[in-house]
Design a protein around this nucleic acid. Sequence first.
RNA 1: GGGGUCGUCGUUCAGCGGUUUAGGACAUCUGCCUGUCACGCAGAAGAUCGAGGGUUCGAAUCCCUUCGGCCCCGCCA
Length: 600
Amino acid sequence: MLEITVPVMEPLSGLRRTHSCGELTLEQVGREVTLMGWVHRRRDLGGLIFIDLRDRVGITQVVFNPQTDPVLHKKAGLLRGEFVVAVTGTVHKRPPGTENPQIGTGQVDVIARELRILNTAKPLPLQVSEDQEVDEALRMKYRYLDLRRAGMQSIMHLRHRVTQSVRKFFDQEGFWEVETPLLIKSTPEGARDYLVPSRTNPGRFFALPQSPQIFKQLLMVAGFERYFQIARCLRDEDLRADRQPEFTQIDVEMSFVEQEDVLTLMERLFASVFQECLDYTLPIPFPRLTYKEAMEKYGNDKPELRFGLPILDVSDGVRESEFSVFSDTLAKGGSVKGISLPGKGGLSRKDLDGLGKLAESMGAKGLLSYALTDEGPKSSILKYLSPSSQQKLQELAALKPGDLLLMIADETSRALDCLGKLRVELGRRFDLIPRGKFAFAWIVDFPLFHYNEDTRQLEPQHHPFTSPLQGDLDLLDKDPTRVRAAAYDLVLNGYEVGSGSIRIHQRPLQEKIFNLIGLSMEEAKEKFGFLMEAFEYGAPPHGGIAPGLDRIVMIMAGAETIREVIAFPKNQNANCLLTGAPVEVSEDQLKLLRIRVDQG
RNA sequence: GGGGUCGUCGUUCAGCGGUUUAGGACAUCUGCCUGUCACGCAGAAGAUCGAGGGUUCGAAUCCCUUCGGCCCCGCCA
């Protein structure tokens, strides 16, 4: 008898997989099958050996019996976690009482006739077969193992289905998928560019695209009319849980459309994608809020709309109060803003202090409360509030018995900002945010510009190719900060997941905007002359949007960070912990590019 | 650039100035086990407590510095 003591790696040599590990049912009983995959778990009972064989699809139990084939059984005893094997055997109905209802293939097992060990595996730095939390740095270093785990497989499969669903939708709608260049001209406005030196043009550099913006507009000038691209975008900026240096946009541009056309198309896109990929019916149309409404009701331009608790202006309720925080704030033109918390009037002093601390950490000077308890109104500033003030306050906040009103008095924008952050945290703490809900919304009527105090210069809120709203054109000269843009953001569960606009398609207006943001005619020509020239050869009116694929999939998957939905993400320092990139390069490489590194 | 937080066997977690020879679970190794399915049982090996410095009779534990991970501010047209 052949004595096997160490696993020998064997070739496939013609062996073909007949089934996946996820598809065997009672239907295949009696048939000989060949499965290939990884040893997920082994249960060596001394006699019988059970192997859970895993592939991308599922898990099938393979049985090795020492009585039917002692040599094979001995070989099976050498198997360890994550060995790669091919098994040929017969599908059997499991003996009664040994079925496993937890897996789809649990009615059957495969009695092995042949086992080939295609590769071995060392003991693992992280457990593929278990769903425990593992240090993220370790996951990144061994990302190929991390990606084997069920959770990551299902997320990456979801991502695949989303991109396929997006492609199908756009194809049906008559859009052409076009690839735009990765090596492009650097235009240092906005985010920092990743630069690529050109060996054939020493001393000159390409930039990697922050988005395909200009090229998709040129495609409209080219008469493509409807374009989309699953496009990689690159920005050399600092990272966040929802920001990676390279990320993917569903880039879209259309000719002969107005804002409404883009919005409704996107609503149909996401309704279709969510239905197909999650079997979730999105209510359309999505709610639309103006930028101003969003700021006033939710304190930011990407409101979390899975729950209510809008911010209220209660200034009128405390206008007559002699409490100096109120009077001073209002005298200086600030506001008193509040959030009404139904049923939370019974919170203890300690709870309220905790919320106060929280508000302070969010930039508030303090948090004031007013509660309607069983024993009547309760507030640390009760003595400053006359009965009529209280009456007014209760009306403004629609307070019912048992409710709590939290207030911040400050410069209006700061009060809104703090309450906006507080609102979301209150939603979390009091568990007001429904799980499994997807609340899309549009934010519209953004200002075209914002004023940068440091540079004393108007800057585009979106980008300089955004068209002003038709009705606000006359304000461009009079009061540019009041000009609204034909721009729109798509918001989902408190994340900005897309941003778009109707573009400028006429040279004179484009020149005017460049001028207003302080770009001289020379600079404008130097940077964007080719675009303005294109506008002179019959550019159609056009507009578009670019939803962020990573963020949307992250939210669909219920993941906490964008890294969870990217196969090989960077860490917070924009390093790849798996490959070690970025790395220093050799003197020879630099010489070829005529680059010297300042070791500073 | 700034603020916060974490770092203990391969993994995950406990220990947070002294009954610690740093403990459990999983993984690994050895033995037993023929219907297990997170198999079970018995045993073994495995950790200079991220690194460096300091305080102390005594430091995984307190302090400082530093490195690394994560979260946030700035930044992201």
